[in-house]
Every structure is written in structure tokens, then in C-alpha cells.
Design a protein around this nucleic acid. Structure first.
Lengths: 118, 118
DNA sequence: CAGGATCCAAAAGGATACTG
DNA sequence: CAGTATCCTTTTGGATCCTG
């Protein structure tokens, strides 16, 4: 409840819907820049409002950075994980390790589970 | 979004309000049993509905266990961290480490921050 | 193309009263 | 004491349309 509690601040953005999927998409890209429309097409059911909300939140927290190419039209906005964001992926992996250690379900049976974040 | 995704399952309960504070209270207790009323008194503004919801969620996920003493009246319900729950505290510590590593705010200035979970 | 604005639906949280 | 039931408020997510 404390605004300055580090744990709560972290959970405040990471606990939200779509956030991890966005981080994952950027992580898969291997530190490459991905444009807004790429993310939108990959995350099939996300609406533009939610996507930009999440991107802004992650940017405010310093996990991703944004680069705009306005030279050529149409404009393209690109996003990429920062070092802080990349480091956070390790935390997510810890969560997954914990879960795999204690869950009876050993695999989510999705291709993503293996290639996902572990 | 996948029901079986370990990461999402974990975030689904841990991301909720009060959950970490409850885990913290039980963790402070050093594996001792704490009663419902103790938790309610310590977590000042929590309402009975939320407290019992969170306790049930945590119990379903196997992070805490419940013991009821119905011998003597009035009945007392007691809660304690399981090994799985205790192990999860380590994950929370990882989140805190990450946050302390990257945040400019170095301390939440609350007594809790030091005694908290690190 | 990249989003902002608006409006609506759903979910979560919370206050209060009540019961075995 | 340890909750449950009910009702209400707030927050979040989502669908759709619009614009530089």
C-alpha cells in the first residue's frame, strides 16, 4: 500500500494484463526494436488503447524505451527492452522456476512454455 | 492469458491487493500460527471479506495452511505459511533486489522496508 | 501508422450488517 | 470469533471512432 514500497511498485505494473506478453515479445526480439504495429499484430486481441497504456507504463518504469522515426512517412514508433527491463526478465524466470518446482502441472502444454521465458 | 501459464498463475494471486502484506505478516511470525483476528488487527484497514478472500486464494494455491481449534470457545482459525509459501518469499526478495538495484529511490523510508522481506 | 477520446462492461475492492 | 451476504464505489479493460 506504500507508494514507495519497491515490491508493490514492481507488482503494480507487472501484475497487469498484457504487460508480461509485451515484455515477452520484446524479449523474443532479442533486443531489437519492434514497432507498435508489429506488437499489435502479434498480440492478437489487444486494443490500441491498452497497448499504448501498457507501453507508457513500462516506459515510465524504465523497462522499455521508445524511438520514433519521423523521417519517412508513415511515422513508425519503435520499442525495445532496456537493460533494466532485460534484468527484470530474470525475475520473471525466478517466478517460473518457483512455479515449476511446486506445481503439479509441469508444463502449460503450449509451445510458448518452453520457448517462453525459461 | 493462458490458464496454465505458471507465471500468470503466480501473478494472478500475488498481484492482488493485501496478498503480500498477508504473506509478510505470516512470514514475520516465523512459521508460527496466526489467528484470523490477529491478522485483521495488524492489517488495519482490511475488511473481513477481503481478508477471507485472500486467505482462501492463498490456501487454494498452497502457500498457506489453515488450522481450526474448535475445542474451546470461541473458535479460533489459524494460518501459517507452508513450505511452498516460504519458498515464494524468496521470489519476492528477488523482486525487491531488482527494484533496489534499479530504482533511484533507495529506501521506502518505512520501518517495514528494512525489516520487511530482505 | 500510432495513438488519443469517448463511452460502456466487467471486475475488484470496500462498508456495513448479520449469523453459527 | 470467524467469517458470509448484500449492496455500493472504484478501477480496469475493452469496443469503437477519430485524427495528425
Amino acid at each position: 500500500m506504500n507508494e514507495k514500497c519497491h515490491i508493490y511498485r514492481a507488482l503494480n505494473f507487472v501484475g497487469k494484463r498484457w504487460t508480461l506478453l509485451i515484455l515477452l515479445e520484446l524479449y523474443k526480439g532479442n533486443s531489437k526494436w519492434k514497432r507498435y504495429s508489429e506488437l499489435k499484430n502479434t498480440l492478437l486481441d489487444i486494443t490500441p488503447k491498452i497497448l499504448s497504456s501498457r507501453l507508457n507504463e513500462l516506459r515510465e518504469e524504465g523497462l522499455i524505451e521508445k524511438r520514433v522515426d519521423s523521417d519517412k512517412m508513415p511515422i513508425s514508433s519503435n520499442y525495445s527492452l532496456t537493460k533494466k527491463g532485460l534484468d527484470f526478465v530474470l525475475v520473471i524466470k525466478e517466478i517460473k522456476k518457483w512455479s515449476l518446482k511446486w506445481d503439479t502441472i509441469q508444463d502449460c502444454k503450449s509451445d510458448d512454455c518452453k520457448t517462453c521465458l525459461l
